[in-house]
């Protein structure tokens, strides 16, 4: 189920980038795309009825049904990168606004 939600979010993000003409909205769409992607990554590691992948005194054997921990680690990195890109995008959006006085791509008068 989670996968479908993630794919819908990714599609939504792509749709936003494809149709929106506003710089901020495009950045938001990028974010949606990334969130969808992150969800998808986490969902890959999901195991139905699985345990948290931590050895404890109760769960001290490898035979137990752990969820995959790797995607969770990947997602952390991906989120950080996404935040960095968003921050940079917003900074550029600010310079765009300073230069053109608008956020709308169609009103900038530059090919």
């Amino acid at each position: 189920m989670l996968q479908y939600a993630a794919i819908v979010l990714i599609m939504l993000g792509l749709y936003g980038i494809l149709t929106k003409r506003n710089v901020i909205k495009i950045i938001v769409s990028l974010n949606i795309l990334e969130i969808g992607l992150n969800l998808f990554i986490v969902s890959v590691g999901f195991v139905d009825g699985g345990l948290a992948p931590i050895f404890t005194s109760q769960n001290a054997t490898n035979d137990l049904n752990f969820v995959d921990p790797l995607p969770q680690a990947l997602v952390l990195t991906a989120i950080v990168i996404g935040v960095g890109t968003t921050a940079l995008g917003l900074a550029i959006a600010k310079t765009i606004y300073a230069k053109y006085g608008t956020f709308n791509l169609d009103e900038m008068g530059e090919k």
């Binding site: 792509l14 980038i17 494809l18 090919k111």
Partner: peptide
């Protein structure tokens, strides 16, 4: 080649 970001996304799709 336009300065519109959506072009690339369009062709990717």
């Amino acid at each position: 080649f336009t300065n519109k970001p959506e072009i690339t996304v369009f062709w990717i799709l």
